[in-house]
Nucleic acid binder design. Structure first.
Length: 530
RNA sequence: GGCGGGGUAGCCAAGUGGUAAGGCAGGGCUCUGCAAAAGCCUCAUCCGUCGGUUCGAUUCCGACCCUCGCCUCCA
């Protein structure tokens, strides 16, 4: 069965076929162009944003697993109303004392401004775009191949708008802004409302139209170019369209087509982006008439559902608004967050909870423990994958990325391995096969190595003095064991041998205060980091 | 008001016209001097409610209840 993915355009799960099957990379792999709407960098991203980015990462990794060469593009929106407002607020605070050097913290960074200098849009957005990159890394998301910033694509944006104006799809208003005309677009036989069912008569769109959009001919029309206004400060570009800045939707059209061509395979984003953002992207991109005849702007649209936090919509007042660093501050790791985000189907609203994160930690420990034992048995070697497990895994993932089913396959497999390990029937060869299997699967979920996964095996391990045969102290953590801890383990061994169990238990308590757990295994004491 | 998702064990979450995956928590057990964040076993007569179709429905149809989202910046 081929890979099947839900396509918002058809509202159904359909086989995934590259738009240009004949395009291959040097290695002979079919190429896939994939664009995912990225962050607006005015603050830290929250866990909901990252659900979408982890989802995009999963799509990319699974396509790669399936043998495609993916080019992954994600935009960084670095000019936008909220950004401009934040920069301007900051600058009006600074303006009170323009004669001296100003220093203030911004996000994770410290900004220093010389006398007379103001915070620039670029400096401001770089702080949060850097933070975004760090969060992506923490969640083990592969960096997209291209991370275009809107401000670097002004010429392409302007060119696209001019094309739309030339084709009569867009009009200039008296203030100098340019709007896209949905009526003209539909008049050319194009369909507006491909991603959502729109009933223009029943829409309550008139009720909540922002008051500053009075220049539009029709309420559904949207801004391509916003003419410069005083509040923009020095955030404007001098272009053939006049002074101003791009609207929001147009940057994605301009950048995606600049990097992936006028027609490409996949476009992803959060479910809220389907309308109006993605709908408008289609209108702009196809309205410009740059595709070859019969080709769509995007073949396959995918949308990730939102998440709830502790059963509620995230909100600061409810205290359930989490950024990635809020969670790491609470002691959770990137892999735990990633695992939890990858535990539910992407089109299902997911309830993200702290208890779920705790559960993720335990589940991951079970996985780590199993892989660690396999490493010990196979001495880290791996051969070929277990075809039965790989087939079950692939068939689950082929079914519109059914990660829940895929994890069930993995945990069933872990249980059966544990049974064999416990009964001493797992051969070195079995372990090598199992490790190869995990190696493949892990490339998709990319759950970073846990403690025992990286554990030092056999060679180099220190042994308890004067034991014959030597009893090794097993390191089940991913950091070196301190000398102090080694000494305590040796003392505990001596106490146990002398049947001074009170002393042995006391030492276990001491180790715990030092952050180490000791488990007595058949091979020797095993240390894990608390 | 229009459109679109959901409601499955204490919690999270798959799934099927033929009698309920997986994870966490809970319970039991094993190894152990004792332990373990070690391992194994166990844990829903039942899938929002009420009707209907069917030999048989949690799965199909209808109604209703509840809930979330989009229609406006938003992952």
């Amino acid at each position: 069965m081929p890979l099947q993915l839900y396509n918002t355009l058809t509202r159904s799960v359909v086989p995934f076929e590259p738009l240009f099957p004949e395009n291959r990379d040097p290695a002979g792999k079919q190429t896939v162009g994939m664009y995912c709407c990225g962050p607006t960098v005015y603050d830290y991203g929250h866990i909901g944003n990252f659900r979408t980015f982890v989802f995009a990462d999963l799509v990319r990794r699974y396509l790669e697993f399936r043998g495609y060469a993916v080019r992954h593009v994600m935009n960084i929106t670095d000019v936008e109303d909220k950004i401009i407002r934040k920069v301007s607020d900051r600058n009006s605070a600074i303006a009170h004392n323009p004669a001296s050097t100003t220093t203030f913290p911004l996000g994770d960074e410290v900004v220093t401004l010389l006398p007379g200098q103001f915070l620039s849009l670029e400096r401001f957005t770089s702080v949060f775009s850097n933070a975004f990159m760090r969060d992506l890394d923490l969640l083990a998301c592969q960096r997209p191949h291209d991370l275009p910033k809107a401000t670097d694509y002004i010429p392409q944006i302007v060119a696209l708008i001019e094309k739309l104006v030339a084709r009569g799809m867009a009009y200039k208003t008296p203030d100098g802004s340019v709007y896209f005309s949905i009526e003209k677009y539909r008049g050319c036989g194009c369909k507006y409302g491909q991603l959502v069912n729109l009933n223009f008569d029943a829409m309550r769109v008139g009720e909540r139209v922002a008051s500053d959009e009075y220049d539009k001919e029709s309420v559904a029309d949207f801004a391509l170019w916003k003419a410069r206004v005083p509040e923009d400060g020095d955030v404007f570009w001098e272009t053939q369209l006049g002074e101003g800045r791009p609207g929001w939707h147009i940057e994605c059209s301009a950048m995606s087509m600049a990097l992936l061509g006028p027609s490409f395979d996949l476009h992803l984003g959060g479910e809220d982006l389907a309308f109006p953002h993605h709908e408008d992207e289609i209108a702009q991109s196809e309205g410009a008439g740059v595709q070859n005849s019969g080709q769509p702007f995007v073949k396959h649209w995918m949308h990730g559902s939102h998440l709830l936090v502790e059963g509620k919509k995230m909100s600061k007042s409810l205290g359930n608004y989490f950024t990635v660093r809020d969670l790491t501050t609470k002691g959770y790791t990137g892999r735990e967050i990633r695992f939890l985000l990858l535990s539910a189907h992407y089109r299902e609203t997911f309830n993200f909870t702290l208890a779920g994160l705790d559960g993720a930690r335990t589940a991951l420990a079970r996985l780590d423990e199993c892989i660690g034992k396999l490493q010990e048995i196979a001495k880290g070697r791996h051969t070929i994958e277990d075809s039965v497990v790989m087939e079950s895994f692939t068939s689950a993932m082929d079914d519109d990325l059914n990660v829940a089913r895929a994890w069930a396959v993995i945990f069933d497999w872990v249980r059966s391995l544990n049974r064999s390990i416990a009964s001493n029937t797992l051969t070195v060869g079995d372990a090598e096969v199992a490790l190869a299997t995990w190696h493949r699967i892990r490339a998709v979920f990319e759950i970073p190595a846990g403690q025992t996964d990286l554990a030092a095996i056999a060679g180099g391990t220190r042994c308890i003095p004067d034991t014959n045969p030597p009893i090794p102290v097993l390191n089940g953590s991913n950091e070196p064991i301190p000398e102090e801890v080694y000494q305590l383990v040796f003392q505990r061994y001596a106490a146990k041998k002398a049947k001074d169990f009170a002393r042995a238990d006391a030492i276990r308590g001491e180790l715990k205060t030092l952050g180490w757990i000791v488990e007595d295994t058949a091979k020797g004491p095993k240390l894990k980091r608390l």
